[in-house]
Structure formats: C-alpha cells, structure tokens
Design a protein around this nucleic acid. Structure first.
Lengths: 147, 147
DNA sequence: CCTTTTCCTAGTATGTCAATATGAATTAAG
DNA sequence: CTTAATTCATATTGACATACTAGGAAAAGG
C-alpha cells in the first residue's frame, strides 16, 4: 500500500479520506442521504475504514446519520460553512507541526529557551491560514473549474 | 518517550534535532570545531543519535567534520546562508503534506479529478514560504531577543 | 602507540497507520 | 413480525517508521 518513497506526510489517510468523504456527500446528497457503500465505491476506499472515519464526523456533528434501509449520511450544514481545517482537525486531532504547540503542552522544560519554537509557531500559523479559509464550497468550485 | 497525547506531528526528531544541532554549532564554534558530545549534553540529546543525524548534514555539505582529538564539526557557510527549509528538507526528506506532491509522483490515477490536491498545494506553498525565508541567523536573533 | 574523535552498520522496542473482521443495534418495507 | 439494509461499536492485525542503542572501525593528534 505505502508508496515506494514513503516520506514525511503531514496528513494521514484519516484526514484526507474525511475531506473526500465530505465532498462526496456534498456532491451526491439532495435526493436523500448518501450511503457509505456508495462513497466507498466512488472514492475507491474501503467501506469499513470509511465507517470509522465518518463516525468521528458524526460524533462531531458534522454529518447526521440515518439508519436502516435508505439510510446514510447528510451534511448538517451547507458546504460553505465547513472549512478544511474543521474537517482535518477533528480527524487528525491537531495540525500542529510539533507537540509543544498542542493545547497547553508545557511539559518541555526547554520551552523558554527554545529558539525553534518560534519557527514552529510560524509554520502552524501559515498552515492554519490556509486551511481555515478554504471551505468545502471553495473546493467544490475547484472541481467545477476543471470540467 | 512519546508524550501522553501523541498526535500528528509534522516534524520528527530528525529534523528538529538537526535544526538545534546546527544552531548549537553556530553559537559555539569560533575557537574550533564543536564536538558531538558537547552538543548532546547541551541539548539533552543522545550522542549516538546525533551522530546519525549530523552524518546526513555532513554528506549534504552543510557541515564539515574534523576527526581525531580536538575534532568536531564546523558549519561550511555562515548562518545567514542556511534556511530552515534546507535543514529540514535534507533530514526529513520532504515537507510535502501528501505524497502526491513529491518529486514527480504521478502514480495516483485520481490525480486529474482530485479536488483536494489544490488544497495540499496551497498548504505546501504556505509551509515553504515560511521555512525557505527563515535563516539560522534569523533564529539566532530570536534567541538574543529573549535575553 | 594511545587516546580521542568521527564514521559505519546493525539491531530493537515501541507505537502508529491502515486497514479487516465480526457482529450488534436500528429501521424501513412487505 | 420477519427480513434486509443500513449504521454503530469494538477488537485484531500486519506492515512500517520512529527513535533510539550497541559495537566497533577508521582517522588523526600527541
């Protein structure tokens, strides 16, 4: 599965699949909820794995589930109300480039003298600046531009 | 070793230690080469692990080694000639947030229809914009600002 | 030589990732 | 009320990477 030259990847499949999954629902809902099975086959991702990922989105209130036959998932908001950052953060856990930027992590005793911390902060800000200003709607429009 | 809440960390110890190591040499050379042993004790990092990391920097020509007694390492350039990106890239391998942005990776058959690719590109550009414009000298000046 | 350093390679414990597997709970349709 | 289709929950697994540790070889100064 892993590519030949596996390097540092900032985002795991969880976050990447979560984005594709949300975009897939956005594009395919309308007549009713979207089934995991259909998302999986359209996106070429294992259904069972998608189930685990969408359960995170479900618990976070980003999608609403309907069980039973003709069930599936619907977005709870319109695509322009989701940023990429929201989706990535809830699935990946955090986007911080190093752990000392995590929520109140003051465990590092070198924190005060740490020169590199400023660098990590700037990287973190740069990434946040991108993902927090791009919505699912934006991404859908990129799709349309291609066609 | 791993913190209690281990989350997605963009940078591994290799890249982070490499930066601290380069900064340490920059601050302590002058009278002569800087020994791994001293860097390790100042930075609180295993000497043996540092050896492996500095060998990457050595092979890349970023430091020059002097063997034998009174040996150690010296920078080959002045601190302002190294960007954080140079150090991180050579040790981490790549800073791309997803593998499809790697050097000529066209293996993904969904590349053309991939909506999320544009997002990864923008993140990549944002990160590069930071790390490629911050030099070791900049980081040293942050250090001085603190004191 | 002897000591101090870098250099090289191999091994290892741990954890994470990316699934797979199994089945329970819920609900619509007949 | 049964059946089928869906989501929901949890456990397990193989592969791989990370972050070291270990042992010694090579070079060089005194």
């Amino acid at each position: 599965m892993a590519g030949k030259v596996r390097l540092v990847m900032m985002f795991s499949t969880k976050g990447r699949y979560a984005l594709r999954l949300m975009l897939d629902i956005a594009m395919n809902e309308g007549e009713g909820p979207v089934r995991i099975k259909d998302i999986g086959s359209r996106q070429g991702i294992s259904d069972k794995y998608l189930e685990q990922i969408i359960s995170i989105l479900n618990r976070s209130g980003y999608v609403r589930s309907i069980r039973g036959p003709h069930g599936g998932y619907k977005l709870t908001k319109s695509p322009k109300e989701y940023t990429a950052g929201m989706i990535l953060r809830v699935t990946e856990g955090s986007l911080a480039p190093v752990s000392c930027l995590e929520f109140e992590d003051n465990t590092c005793e070198r924190r005060d003298e740490c020169v590199t911390l400023e660098l990590w902060k700037r990287i973190d800000d740069a990434v946040s600046g991108v993902v927090d200003h791009i919505t699912l709607e934006d991404m859908l429009s990129w799709k349309n531009d291609k066609q």
